[in-house]
Amino acid sequence: MSIWIDIGALDDLPLRGSRCVQTPTGKIGVFRTADDRIFAIRNECPHKGGPLTEGIVHGHSVTCPLHNWVISLETGAAQGADEGAVETIPVRVEGTRVLLLRSAIGARVAA
């Protein structure tokens, strides 16, 4: 059975914004888009490791603050001519709470 970890209230996430979650396996970025969908990805740009949570959120993408790579929140892949991807983390909203899939966070610990 999948175990989900509560990381906070939906209201803690600004629209077209993001927050970061610290985990033993590194930082995870949680994003809330203009159409009120929630995404989670590893918070490291595949280019130079920039903190994606600091970027501008637009559509279902975020632009890295360091060198303007555009990363898809849905697939984690770099858009346009850039190549690379970050890991996506399963996330869901239950009522007013936001939850991450524990096995995805802990995967590296287990490995």
Binding site: I3, I5, L13, R19, Q22, P24, T25, I105, G106
Partner: peptide, 17 residues
């Protein structure tokens, strides 16, 4: 305030399967 704090800190215990 939210800008400067992580949304959550998930500890090793919580994360371990």
């Amino acid at each position: 305030k939210h800008e400067f704090k992580p949304m959550a800190v998930v500890g090793y215990q919580e994360a371990a399967e």
